[in-house]
Design a protein around this nucleic acid. Structure first.
Lengths: 151, 151
DNA sequence: TATTGTTATACTCTATAACTATA
DNA sequence: TATAGTTATAGAGTATAACAATA
């Protein structure tokens, strides 16, 4: 410690699950951003490309549901990808607008998938393959306990 | 799906560790915010109170290191707590300024600790007590793998 | 010179309210 | 009316650069 060198700094956060969840998620998101930078995409844009590539013709609402995001927050991301020539808004035959990737978008989608796979392998390399599903199930349960359960 | 009801929406994110880490951390932070709202504090302010209460006389740099935060981002939080009469900046005998809680701050610190404990119990209630340390160790390892390891 | 604390700034993410268009 | 998409906006959270004060 800076002021009183005789006393060590006590960090009560270090034993808290919530703090480590938050910190680890931040580190993982940062690493994903670095992995995607060479593709000219940030994590949000790449995730959008990933989802639309896997679901050609899906609507903006579908994506918002999958991401648990507010539809309004997707608008600037989608517009940027559309302006970059990566995706096309199909002729809306009604309210929902089907989104599809252009040829350029599909080419980049392949690189995005590879980057995601490499990123997943990196952050999960200390977890044996047969345990990764259990870890995800644990996170999903914590999410439920935090959100929906009785206080 | 809205547009083509025959095809189900494929969610590649659902099998990704990174996505669930991010989503769970967001849910946990949201739950912490709700738990702290009755105390008039947000998670950042409460964490600051928690750290200073556990380390009377610590400096702003100590806190920044513990939180892995930028010192510049602590300034408005500390000022708000000081203006609220919860903490005092001691007479700086040099560059570092020792931070201590006022009597009012110490009283609130007790309630903050109780709220943190209840929150930890809530988000960890599906994890047997003897496994919680393992889960934290796992998160810490993922954090290291994401940050520092070879790409 | 190196460190602490501070200010200003900017970018991302997130959340809401209000509007339009369509079934 | 209900749903989809959009716009504007506001609030956190986080990052850097630049500066003043002190060892």
């Amino acid at each position: 410690m800076t002021i009183d060198p005789d006393s060590a700094f006590t960090d009560p956060l270090d034993a808290m699950l919530g703090f480590h969840l938050r910190r680890t998620a931040a580190a993982v998101t940062g690493a994903l951003g670095e992995a995607l930078a060479p593709l000219g995409l940030n994590p949000g844009e790449a995730t959008l490309l990933r989802l639309i590539g896997a679901n050609p013709g899906c609507s903006q609402s579908d994506i918002a549901r999958a991401l648990r995001a507010q539809p309004a927050n997707l608008v600037p991301l989608i517009n940027k990808l559309a302006l970059s020539g990566l995706l096309e808004k199909g002729a809306g035959k009604g309210r929902a607008i089907p989104l599809t990737l252009t040829a350029e978008g599909q080419a980049l989608h392949g690189r995005v998938c590879a980057a995601f796979d490499a990123h997943e392998a990196r952050i999960g390399r200390s977890i044996p393959m047969e345990q990764r599903h259990d870890v995800i199930a644990l996170l999903r349960q914590i999410c439920l306990d935090a959100c929906c359960g009785p206080a």
